[in-house]
Each structure stands twice: as C-alpha cells, then as structure tokens.
C-alpha cells in the first residue's frame, strides 16, 4: 500500500468512527439530560439494585455512557447497513 492510500484509509476509518461516535454523543447528552431530570439515580438504584453502592455522580456517568453505547450501536448499524448497499449500487452501475 502506498503512503497516500494508507493515509487515506486511516483517515476514512477515522471519519467512519466519527460518524458513529459524534452523533451518538450528542443524542446521548440530550437523552441523559431528559432522563435524569425526571429520574433521580438514587431512587432508581434503591428501587432496582438496593445492594449496590452507586452515588448520584456515578449514576449520572453510568447513565450517560449507557445512552452513548446504545446510540452508538444504532449509528454503527446505520453506517454498516448503508455501506454495502452503496457498493452494490456502484457495482450495478459498472455492469450496465
């Protein structure tokens, strides 16, 4: 692989990662805000996992990363479902 194409591949992987992580970060931020405005992590822990010691700060953080992971999974699926379709379309154009 030439230097240029290696850089390009690395840069495209980076963009790909960005397209997954960045929008999910934004939506997870909004989701966290709305969720924890209505639900006190302390109460949630008490109701569901009374034996665990999770303070509010840890609760907020866990909540945020959970939302982020879920949103990122959705973004990743979108990106993944998008790419083969486009390659197929390109291949189709070449054949015709």
């Amino acid at each position: 692989m030439s230097d240029a194409s290696a850089t390009q591949a690395a840069s495209s992987r980076l963009r790909w990662l960005g397209a997954i992580l960045w929008p999910s970060f934004l939506t997870a931020g909004v989701a966290t805000m709305v969720f924890f405005a209505n639900v006190d992590p302390e109460t949630l822990r008490y109701e569901t996992l009374p034996d665990w010691e999770i303070g509010r700060k840890l609760g907020y953080t866990l909540g945020f990363f959970m939302f982020w992971a879920v949103c990122a999974a959705s973004s990743a699926l979108s990106v993944w479902l998008f790419s083969p379709a486009r390659r197929a379309a390109k291949a189709g154009r070449k054949e015709s």
């Binding site: 390009q8 840069s11 495209s12 998008f82 790419s83």
Partner: peptide, 10 residues
C-alpha cells in the same frame, strides 16, 4: 457524502 464510506478528501 457518497464517497464518505470509502474516502474523504484529506
């Protein structure tokens, strides 16, 4: 955007 998956202009 259509090239987004394969490459972006650097």
């Amino acid at each position: 955007a259509s090239e987004a998956v394969s490459m972006y202009q650097s």
